[in-house]
Design a protein around this nucleic acid. Sequence first.
DNA 1: GGCGGTCGGATTGTCAGACAAGACCCCTAT
DNA 2: ATAGGGGTCTTGTCTGACAATCCGACCGCC
Lengths: 246, 246
Amino acid sequence: MTDAAGKFARISSTPAYQLVADAIERQILSGRIRPGQPIGTEAALVKQFGVNRSTVREGIRLLEQGGLIRRESNRRLSAGSPHYERLATRMSRALVLDQVTFRELYEAAMVMHTATAEAAAERATPEVLAELEANLAMTQRVADDPAAVTELDAEFHTLIGKASQNRVLQLAREPTNLLIYPTTELILRNVKQGTPRLIRAHRMILDALSKHDPDACRAWVRRHLNDWRKGFELAGKDLDQPIEQI
Amino acid sequence: MTDAAGKFARISSTPAYQLVADAIERQILSGRIRPGQPIGTEAALVKQFGVNRSTVREGIRLLEQGGLIRRESNRRLSAGSPHYERLATRMSRALVLDQVTFRELYEAAMVMHTATAEAAAERATPEVLAELEANLAMTQRVADDPAAVTELDAEFHTLIGKASQNRVLQLAREPTNLLIYPTTELILRNVKQGTPRLIRAHRMILDALSKHDPDACRAWVRRHLNDWRKGFELAGKDLDQPIEQI
DNA sequence: GGCGGTCGGATTGTCAGACAAGACCCCTAT
DNA sequence: ATAGGGGTCTTGTCTGACAATCCGACCGCC
């Protein structure tokens, strides 16, 4: 990017509130302030940085949205590791704004969900299996309520992510989960076979997980996702359409 | 907010600056304000929302960090779709703070990078192939500078993401890219065979992409990642260690 | 007529100070 | 010992102000 010798570096004066935010961020990332530990009061920060309270507050706001700082119930600010859920919503929002198509979503979900399921089959603990079992039982109980089934479906897949014990995969997967979620309800309402097929798929996936059988697990997740795609098309949607806002 | 009659309303008491941020965010997400379009001036927002300028500014800061709003060269604020790079750094930061291990990173990268490469083999355009070719040529030229090779390696993999034409996968993958990156240099410095093997792998991957051969592409990416893992262990690191900060 | 310099308005970044509403804390009265 | 009361601290919001900068318009000069 830097070419001929005569050019000078692009001048960029960083605003003070940005510097404040950077400083606090470094403190947290370097571990000097542990997650959960309270950040100083605004007055203290004013003294430390030697700037006005308004400036400090603007700097804090920069970090607050990112989740690096969160408000306790007391309104007091403390450092907090940004949790995945928040990041995931942000990611899916970016994808929506970028007008990603359902085909891209489907393809990516296929890759990541099968991989997660495979890992989960190898490592699922009895605790997670119990949670999944409870989830499935609840799904069967509310089978005639598409909204409830949809919600439980999302939870089911999040639980599989948990079972995989791979947080990188979990984070990478979560946005697709969020984006698939709103269409599931639409499908369940429009496609008769939807709910029974969903429950059957969950049953088989859970069985495969219990038996620690990665291949069966992968196969059924694949089938489950294909069902989703077919239901999507049956509901009269086009796969190459951009996904809509949530 | 104000209810004198009884204790009915569970007071949510959202701060005003948060409300301002939410309002602006809705405007952008709903498409009423297109990316790149300037948001009003602070004075205008003050008038619209009926709050003080400080409050408006705090609201703006909330969005600024997320990339929903960005400063033009004029310092003027305009809407902007948050781009992946920024999100990716946020995601990798979260993973670091969560003390994710290298094994998790390796496993997730294996899944997503092979899938991306496969998709890229099917869809790579001549333009991207040319970019990759240029990248590889440059890598060979600076083969004795680990830092430069590392940087070009990261770019190589980002280009493969681009070639896959799947933005969901691209976003999901990017954090692993960022996290692998800093260790690559370490490996290249400590392992003699590192650079030639890296170049050879890139060569083979690029050939497979050119021939639109997904299987070969997948195989070589897999080998490339295994090299990374082995190099990591050869450099005396433990796969089950949490990844360090960037 | 084209060019560069200058000026004024608009906008952002920063500051000082103030006040209300809660949250917190310590102290006391029962 | 516990409930209540008051003082202090902290955050959220507002008012007002000023410097730096940017932008556009205007003006004089070649």
